[in-house]
């Protein structure tokens, strides 16, 4: 692979990875505000009206923006029992199919989420709470997250086809 191509590949991947890493801090922030809610309820007898919904919105942003990073790190949970047993040639083919399916599925979800965001904004759809958060704010991260997920998968597919070689041989196993 020529060096100038490597550079843009690296830029895209590190951007996606950085977006994911920054997003993960949202979870820490959520944990702290939920604890604050407990304290506020018990020590000051004044439950908040914003913590629950803000937390859910934060969770939506964090989670969808982390999806592509999961794949970049080969952390997506998959069953490798049979794909591990086949030869290298077949592994490349299976991985190519996998990336193609991921790219396709992500493109579909990203597009539908974008449409839903626009619809929600047009109709004025909002949550039924004190905050009345517009629904497009919930759909936007879905659209962005799956778009980046699509970009990452498409990139992997292109590199796989161009080189005929798998870039990362080890899957990072992940289970609770």
């Amino acid at each position: 692979m020529p060096p100038q191509e490597k550079k843009w590949v690296g830029t895209i991947e590190s951007t996606i990875m950085r977006i994911g890493e920054y997003s993960s801090w949202i979870y820490l922030f959520i944990g702290i505000i939920v604890a604050y809610e407990v304290a506020s309820r018990y020590f000051f007898n004044s439950p908040t009206d914003w913590v629950e919904e803000t937390s859910r919105l934060g969770m939506v942003w964090a989670t969808f923006l982390l999806f592509p990073a999961c794949m970049g790190r080969r952390q997506l949970i998959s069953i490798t029992l049979f794909s591990d047993a086949v030869g290298e040639r077949a592994k490349v083919v299976l991985e190519g199919i996998s990336f193609a399916i991921i790219a396709l599925a992500c493109a579909v979800v990203s597009f539908e989420a974008l449409v839903a965001a626009i619809d929600a904004a047009t109709v004025g759809r909002a949550t039924a709470s004190v905050l009345r958060i517009p629904y497009w704010l919930f759909y936007l991260p879905v659209a962005i997250g799956f778009f980046l997920f699509f970009v990452q998968a498409a990139l992997e597919l292109i590199l796989l086809v161009a080189t005929g070689q798998r870039r990362k041989l080890e899957l990072a196993h992940e289970e609770i």
């Binding site: 839903a116 619809d119 929600a120 759809r125 039924a128």
Partner: peptide, 28 residues
């Protein structure tokens, strides 16, 4: 229940029962 009116609008379902208190987000 949170997505009932949206699901009717986007055609996932043809008929849905939605409550006023949830629809009030969109129609205060």
């Amino acid at each position: 229940d949170q997505h009932m009116d949206e699901a009717v609008a986007n055609g996932t379902i043809d008929i849905g029962i939605a409550s006023a208190s949830i629809l009030a987000g969109t129609v205060p």
